[in-house]
């Protein structure tokens, strides 16, 4: 079980415990002839717990059957190499995530057009590391195209800047 899988497994089991407890305690299970609001979530919580534990046992059995396998060692070495080579893409991913989060934060606050301009410019400059001029051109073209498509062609209600409206 890799580190990521280990965390995912623990989250699954913890989520199962929380859901089952919350469903039993707060939502109530009801009676079989008339199940309450917590009945289905309780079943889901129990299923998550059981499956999470089963996943862990499966991984443990697989590991013990493979512990002397040289193929496994090769995979570990390969994994290490991938991590060190993947440093730059990870920074790119983090920047993309922050830019998207900022877009969600600004969307209603400064309106669609302005937030889209900020997002596209941020993406081109931070994530893609493009030059100023190229970034500005791409940003302007994309924002204009998106605005025309959604505002005028598809007639989607989009938030406008509170200062201008």
């Amino acid at each position: 079980m890799s580190r990521g899988e280990n965390i995912a497994n623990l989250v699954t089991i913890a989520l199962g415990v929380f859901v089952a407890y919350h469903s039993y305690h707060s939502l109530k299970l009801g009676i079989l002839i008339s199940p309450g609001a917590g009945f289905m979530p309780f079943l889901c919580g129990v299923a998550l717990m059981v499956l999470g534990i089963f996943w862990r046992i499966q991984a443990f059995l697989l590991k013990s059957s493979r512990h002397d396998n040289c193929f496994h060692d090769a995979q570990v070495v390969e994994g290490t190499a991938e991590t060190s080579a993947g440093l730059r893409p990870r920074v790119k991913l983090c920047l993309a995530f922050v830019t998207t989060l900022a877009y969600a934060f600004l969307f209603e606050r400064i309106g669609f057009l302005l937030s889209t301009l900020v997002f596209m410019l941020g993406w081109q400059m931070l994530v893609e590391r493009e030059r100023w001029l190229k970034s500005i051109i791409i940003t302007a073209l994309c924002a204009a195209a998106m605005y025309t498509l959604f505002r005028y062609l598809l007639r989607v209600e989009l938030p406008s800047n509170p200062l201008f409206s």
Partner: peptide
């Protein structure tokens, strides 16, 4: 670099 942010804009506007 252009396709990815445009797709994100689509997802965001679509959800909103």
């Amino acid at each position: 670099g252009i396709l990815a942010p445009v797709v994100i804009l689509f997802t965001a506007i679509g959800s909103y």
